[in-house]
Structure formats: structure tokens, C-alpha cells
Nucleic acid binder design. Structure first.
Lengths: 316, 316
DNA sequence: ATGAAAGCGCTAACAC
DNA sequence: GTGTTAGCGCTTTCAT
């Protein structure tokens, strides 16, 4: 009766509602779920490399869920790489109607397959492979990385170091490829010792940049594969008494909040994580309600020129 | 049978488990919940002023929940102040076993009362009032604020501005009180125009500090009631060409991640949000499982002296 | 110890 | 339209 049935007059609805309120009646969601086979809960699956990324993600999902009857269950995975086989078991015992998959889970074939077998719907954020396996929200990582590398090269830099992201995330390779395209277009040789590993965390960026600065021939610019690592690199530069961007330029990737609160503000390329999360949630809800679903959205990226990169001093 | 019954031999258990795996059997959680009247889900209720605070909070809850059968449902509230009356209705329709209450919900008498009426268990983070209404995790906000103010005054500052937190959070008043105790002990007069309102956000700190710097007589130090606002104040200082800590000292409150990634690093006073969230979740689980529950834990705070505060230039 | 049966609170199908 | 009933998948109780 409370479920918006078709042939009930508004007046009656109103009275029923009042009576329900008066009796403090709340339908039992388990009984409902049991018979409807629907929990009205969705999950957000993520690993934990960059807090700012996760925050944006979750904000986006919750934004789309406001006013909706769905509740959000957060499911952090220590290491998708290691626990892929167990993830779907967890999900089905949580009885979720569907899940939003953030990287690197969104790229994991084991998870994708088991999800299909378990008939759990999903929508994905930033996958790079198997794009038709499930609805996807992407940016063009290769192009975005190429553009910011182009920009840095355009400033006159030729001695450029790179801090890579987490190797278990496919976007790390994609961004690497974009950088390399820009390098080869400009005829710059990328030396192996100029590539530092990282994990998408502030600490890993700090450590990587310390390594870079501790070595003899210092680059004039650093491309970090996300903003957290870029901010770590800025910290390392300060430790070495280098000023940014005069002594060394640093650029990031993502436009996460941290890029706007540092000084100088970080030049980066925007990935609209919040909007991607909203769109992914929309795709998931559409599936749950048997509406038409977009199979794939490529979201726009945008080079954001701020103050952390400038021409190298020799050209200054 | 799968529920760890007492009189079953290990061998039988093992075989049952194998059979269950082979058939890919998963118990239906709704049927269980229906008859047991227990959902194995807990909620985290928060408002959204400072992302770094929320991240720590959620990390703590999830940390305590790893390996536990409980799932976490996140419940952001736009404005606890405005929607206190509706919160508990939402919760009971979500059928949660219990909730962790972050400020300002943890201080809200309406929510606390309705929770009790609805027999939803809870544990609280950083309440300042009604401390015996439900298990509480606190720090001594007054003492912590007094200590950091003492420190700044001890550096030689006497022209000190304050950026307040969100007025709907009770800790704002508590910290204010701590500052004032330090001021009066040092015989410093606190002028009204030296108190700027804020909302615990970076942007509000930025705006508040711009106001402060735009006025004629500039303070030599700023006490911000959390780190996000302090970092906003640092940004404003840069905009005015002021260097930190030489021209102006800035200190924060919380020791959130952002305080460690700025340059100079932020002098602040640590509130162990992560540990408080773990403890609150522990208190909640203990209640759910009828174990003894600590009624209140006062967590230690700690003054963290970093580089964003120094003696005023006149003394330098 | 083992098995049968009742019932948790609701929805949907079907008769009236 | 309105009232009745079966049954969702499990746990628990009560016979056996």
C-alpha cells in the first residue's frame, strides 16, 4: 500500500501515510528484500592508494544517490591484485544489488567474470581494458598524459624525470605511453634512470623525488602520474633547497583537491573523478531499474596551467 | 549448520564447508536478518566540512571492521542542524544494527534521543555534551587549544587572530575557550575584530585570512581551529606576499594529512581521529555483542611543533 | 542427535 | 477493487 500502487486515490494515500506516521510504522527492509530479491544497497569497491581520489569517488556516488532509496556500502580491498578471487564472494554475501568498480578493480578480469557469474550488476570507473565487458567511464589517459608532457616540453624542458604510478593500475602504463609519445615527437630521449617507480601516494612521490635529486644530474622538470606524488615531489624539492618552479618544474595528474592547496598551485591535467563517479552510479541505477544504459562515456580531460611549472632557468 | 554450532565434530564441519563451496552456496542474508533481527550492518553518520577529517574517520571504522562480519554503510548528512529530526527515520529504514556518530551529529540531543527510542545502538566521536548519553570518544579540546595558543604566545606573539570553526560544531566553542584561557593567562586582550568566522573548510580559511590581511593592522600569528583552514590561511598569506613563518605564523588543529604535505609543514595539535574511530567502532561492536563497553575514552592530544610558526619578526 | 514445523514481515498472485 | 493466501530462505523450537 505504501509502495506507490497505481489505482489508489491521492486522498487515500495521504491518509495511509498519516496513519503510518502516527503508528511509527516502518516496513521491514529484510522482509521486503527477501521477497523482492533486491536489497537497495550498492557497493563501492576500491583500493586505497590516494585518499583524495577515493574522497572524490565516494562524493560522486553519494551525490547521485541523494534522494534515491539506495544505500552505499563501502568495500575497501587491501590489494585487488592479491585478493581478486575472494572479492565477489564477499559481495554476494553482502547481497548488494550492484557495485561501482574503481581502479584497479575496474580492470580486473577475474572480478569482472565472477561478477557476471554471480549476476551482480556493475558500472566501472577508469578501466583501460575489456571496455565492453561492462559500462565504463573513462578519460583518454594517453592523450591527457601526452598533453601535459607536451606542455612541459613546450616550456623548453628536455631533462625530464617521470614518477610512475602504482604498477598494478593499468592507467600507469597508459600515462607512460602518453609521455613517451610526447618525448619522441620532440625527439627527446627518455633515459631509464629518469623513470622512478611510485605508488600514487604522497610518500612514494616524496621518496622517488628524493632519489631523483640525490643523483648527480638533476632534471629540470618532473612529471608525476598523479597529484599526491607531485606534491610529494614538491616537498622533496624543498628539502633539497630547490625552489619551484625556478629550479625545478613539477606537474601532476588528476586535479585532486591537494593540487589547489599547495603553493605554488600545481599544474596538472584534470580527470573529472567526481563526474565520472556520478555517471557510473547513474549507469548502475539504470541497470537496476531496467532502463537503457550507456555502454561507455569518455569524459573530457583538461590541461590546467597553474604555477608549478615554468621554463627552465637556463631559458628563464 | 554453518553457524558454528557447538556439538559438531571438526571433520563434519570440514565436509559441510567443502560441500557448500562446491555448490557455491551462500546463505541468504535477508532471510537470516529477518529471523535474527540483525543486519550486520553499521552506519557512519557525518556531515561534510573537512574531507581529510572524514577520510580518517572512515579509515578508522573500516580498520576495526576488517575481518569482522559487519559491513559499513556511509550516511552523509547535508546539515545535521537542519535535518536532525529526519536522520533516525532514515537509519531505521536502513535497518542498521548501530551507528558511529561523528560531530556534529554526536552532539545532537534530538538524534541521540530518537536513536534511543528506536533502539539503535551508537558510539560517538568527539562529543562535548551529554557525555553519558552514549559511549564517547573525546579529546580535551579546551586543553589542546590552550596548549597550542600557549605555544604561540610563548614564541612572543601578542597580535593574534583566530579563525573559528563551523558554529554548529560544539568543538568550535571548546577550542575558543582554550584559546581564551591562554590569552587571559598571558594578559593579552582578545579584540573582537581579530575573530574571523570559518566553516572548517580550506575555502573558508582562505576567505577568513584574506579578510584578516586586507585590514590595516596585521596580526603576527593566526590560530586556525583546524588544519584545512590553516592551509587556506597559508594560501592567503602567499597571495599577500607574506612569508610563513617570517611575516606571519599560522597554526592549525587536528594533524590531518594536509598538515604534513604543505610547506612549511604546519604546526598543529594532534587529535587522533583514526584511533578515535577505531575505538568508537569497537564500542559499537561490543554493544552489539553484549560485551562490556567502555563508557568514555579521553584520547591523548599532542602539540606538534613543525615549521609554520616562529617568533614574530620584531623579536627574530 | 536428528528431523519436522512454525514463523520472521512482507509481496504478489489469485480468487472473490 | 478487496481480501486471502502462499511462500521468500532461514533459524529456532519442539517432537521424536
Amino acid at each position: 500500500m505504501l509502495n506507490d500502487e497505481p489505482h489508489v486515490s491521492p486522498a487515500v494515500k495521504q491518509r495511509v501515510r498519516e496513519a503510518a506516521d502516527a503508528l511509527d510504522y516502518h516496513p521491514n527492509v529484510f522482509a521486503q528484500a527477501l521477497v523482492r530479491r533486491k536489497s537497495n544497497m550498492i557497493g563501492l569497491i576500491y583500493e586505497n592508494p590516494s585518499p583524495s581520489y577515493v574522497v572524490e569517488l565516494q562524493r560522486g556516488v553519494l551525490e547521485r544517490l541523494t534522494g534515491e532509496r539506495y544505500k552505499l556500502v563501502v568495500i575497501p580491498i587491501r590489494s585487488v591484485q592479491e585478493h581478486a578471487g575472494e572479492v565477489v564472494g564477499m559481495l554476494r554475501s553482502a547481497a548488494l544489488d550492484g557495485v561501482v568498480l574503481a581502479p584497479p578493480a575496474s580492470d580486473n578480469p577475474i572480478i569482472l567474470n565472477q561478477l557476471k557469474d554471480a549476476r551482480i550488476l556493475c558500472a566501472r570507473i577508469a578501466p583501460t581494458r575489456l571496455l565492453d565487458a561492462a559500462p565504463s567511464n573513462l578519460i583518454d589517459d594517453v592523450a591527457a598524459a601526452r598533453e601535459i608532457a607536451d606542455y612541459v616540453i613546450g616550456l623548453g624542458h628536455r631533462e625530464i624525470a617521470i614518477i610512475r604510478g602504482d604498477p598494478t593500475h593499468a592507467s600507469t602504463e597508459a600515462r607512460m605511453l602518453g609521455y613517451m609519445q610526447a618525448f619522441s615527437k620532440a625527439d627527446i630521449e627518455l633515459r631509464l634512470e629518469r623513470i622512478e617507480p611510485g605508488l600514487f601516494t604522497f610518500d612514494s612521490g616524496l621518496a622517488a623525488a628524493r632519489d631523483i635529486f640525490a643523483r648527480g644530474d638533476r632534471p629540470t622538470a618532473i612529471l608525476a602520474q598523479n597529484d599526491d606524488m607531485a606534491v610529494g615531489a614538491m616537498m622533496a624539492a624543498r628539502e633539497f633547497g630547490l625552489s619551484i618552479p625556478d629550479d625545478v618544474s613539477v606537474v601532476g595528474f588528476d586535479d585532486s583537491e591537494v593540487s589547489r592547496i599547495t603553493w605554488p598551485r600545481l599544474t596538472t591535467v584534470r580527470q573529472p573523478v567526481f563526474e565520472m563517479a556520478i555517471a557510473a552510479t547513474e549507469m548502475l541505477i539504470a541497470q537496476l531499474e531496467d532502463r537503457d544504459v550507456m555502454a561507455r562515456i569518455t569524459h573530457p580531460h583538461e590541461l590546467l596551467i597553474r604555477e608549478s611549472a615554468a621554463p627552465p632557468r637556463s631559458l628563464g
